[in-house]
């Protein structure tokens, strides 16, 4: 496939960075953050995928129990996944028994190849396999172009072996993880992981901080799910992008404000009889300056929001 198409492909959801970082291996220098006992997060770079950052742009990590380890999002490329695995084995000799995908996006999933030899149970949303079927090849080719052309460098997902359509409990030995699947929100394959013991919610890309949220599911669905998550007894959250942790539910504030603004502005535009042409440049402009990568994603979010809300019944 042609270079431009492929570069654009990844630009849609991971994108191409405005400026490459100064260090050649960004992620190698980023330390793990232990946000709670046994819960480790590798914060991703708040930028789009580049050859320099190896697509290590998402927050990824793992939870250690008495008997086993669960990886939550294995990383954005083969090398990103391999680095995460090396860090796990440096911390614990316990087997990596579970691999959990929070959703279908490549910056969270493509590092899975690095865990193939562990033969983990691969836990994903019931929609994941179909969504990956539609998108996986497209994501891999797009990232391979950015990383230098070799598809192996881009990595791949391991196929899910445990599909979650509502909830599933995972026992790491004295540590129960509650995995919950949702309807269309950030994507149509979102799930979260909740650790009872430390009251930590791993939200994946249902929560963005600092980096502008990317709408690839349902805008109103996302706000509904965010409300459900806020009702959980969690004291902290691990967002899919941004810092390793935030207090909960206070950490939902910025994203909720952005999504609510999208809804409000698009509904007002629709009420005025405005057309989709105007959405990209007029909607949620009050949020400019509050998010990194705003110019790269807000217009697209606005068009997506318009396309969804124009089907609503008029109030």
């Amino acid at each position: 496939m042609a270079r431009r198409t492929l570069i654009r492909a990844v630009l849609f959801l991971c994108g191409v960075a405005a400026a490459p970082p100064l260090v050649s291996s960004w992620a190698a220098d980023v330390s793990l953050v232990q946000v709670a006992p046994g819960i480790y997060v590798r914060p991703g770079a708040v930028e789009d995928a580049t050859a320099a950052n190896d697509d290590a742009i998402a927050n990824i990590g793992f939870i250690v129990g008495r008997d086993a380890v669960a990886v939550i999002d294995p990383g954005g490329a083969a090398a990103d996944g391999a680095r995460l695995r090396a860090r796990i084995t440096a911390i614990t000799a316990l087997p990596i028994r579970y691999l959990i995908y929070t959703h279908v996006h490549p910056d969270h999933v493509l590092g899975a190849v690095a865990f193939a030899a562990d033969h983990p149970v691969v836990v994903a949303h019931a929609r994941f396999a179909a969504a990956w079927g539609e998108r996986g090849a497209y994501y891999r080719l797009g990232l391979a172009r950015i990383l230098g052309g070799d598809p192996a460098q881009a990595g791949d997902a391991l196929p899910p072996t445990q599909a979650v359509d509502t909830t599933v409990d995972i026992d790491l030995g004295g540590r129960m993880l509650h995995v919950a699947a949702y309807g269309a929100a950030h994507t149509d394959s979102d799930l979260t992981v909740y650790d009872d013991q430390t009251r930590t919610l791993w939200a994946g890309d249902l929560l963005f901080q600092d980096r502008i949220p990317a709408l690839d599911g349902s805008l109103t669905g996302w706000l509904t799910v965010l409300g459900q998550l806020k009702a959980l007894p969690a004291v902290r959250v691990v967002p899919g992008h941004g810092p390793a942790q935030l207090p909960w539910p206070a950490g939902a504030a910025d994203e909720e404000r952005y999504l609510t603004t999208l809804v409000r502005d698009v509904r007002a535009l629709l009420k005025r009889g405005g057309d989709i042409d105007a959405a990209a440049t007029t909607v949620a402009q009050s949020e400019k300056g509050r998010w990194k990568l705003f110019d790269a994603y807000n217009g697209r979010n606005a068009i997506t929001a318009f396309k969804q809300l124009e089907w609503e019944d008029p109030p």
């Binding site: 496939m1 198409t5 929609r127 994507t187 149509d188 690839d216």
Partner: peptide
Amino acid sequence: AAGGCSAPATKDAALAMER
């Protein structure tokens, strides 16, 4: 603009068929 034909555009596959 580029990629609009091969891009996975449908964001909510269940809704697309339901509607």
